[in-house]
Structures are given as structure tokens and as C-alpha cells.
Amino acid sequence: MEFPKDLKYTKEHEWVRTEEDNIVTVGITDYAQDSLGDVVYIELPQEGGTVTKNEPFGVVESVKSVSDLYSPVSGVVKEVNEELIESPEIINGDPYGDAWMIKVEINSPEELDDLLTSEEYQKFIEEEK
């Protein structure tokens, strides 16, 4: 299982990549996709909508489970991965690449400070097991 060093993580199994200025990309981790199994459906917010840190922003479903997606940051949704909505199964193949979910313009970069590093996240999921 992979947990790229350049990403930040949440205990709800989302990852965050800082793109440029105040834009971040959000997705779910390798561990999350593996626990879910075959992902079959994803619900994401509309472009232009807002997301709030620690609040649900979407839903990811496998055949026999459903999980809320919790936003790691607050801000405005600048872009939504429409291709992922069309073909949710790509999450199982490339959770950190093609299966990114939303790009958010964040209100305050400080919000990123309390997110987990790769090592911290790996330690967290070891304990959770």
C-alpha cells in the first residue's frame, strides 16, 4: 500500500495535495479504496459550491458499503473530477492520480497544518486495524 510523502492525510482517509497558491486537490487514500472494495458510485459537490472542514462533501459507495467523504479543508470547489463520477472504478486503480475528486480554493492555508503526514497516517491506520 502506498502513501506518497508529498501528501497530507486525514483520519477519515482523505488525502490533500497542495497545487499552487491556495488551490488543493482532495481524494481518498489507497487504504480507503482497499477497505471499500470495488467502488461503484461517487457523489461529489457542484463546481462553485463550498466545502467545510470536517463536514461531509460527498459519498463513496461500494456494492455493500457507503461512506461519507469528509472535507479536509474549507473553501470553494473550483473543479470536480467528472470522469471519476462516470467511472468510479478508477479509484481502485489510481487513488492518488486519476481518481482525484475535487480541487478546492482554500480560505486559510493554516487549515493544512493539523493534517497528518504520511508517516503519521500510516501509524494511525496500523493502530486502527
Binding site: 458510485y41 459507495e61 456494492v63 455493500k64 458499503s65 457507503v66
Partner: peptide, 9 residues
């Protein structure tokens, strides 16, 4: 489409 249902949701 069982995720609508009680045994999952």
C-alpha cells in the same frame, strides 16, 4: 443499488 437500503445505510 443496495446502498439505499437499511442493511447498509
Amino acid at each position: 443499488l443496495a446502498t439505499r437500503e437499511q442493511h447498509i445505510r
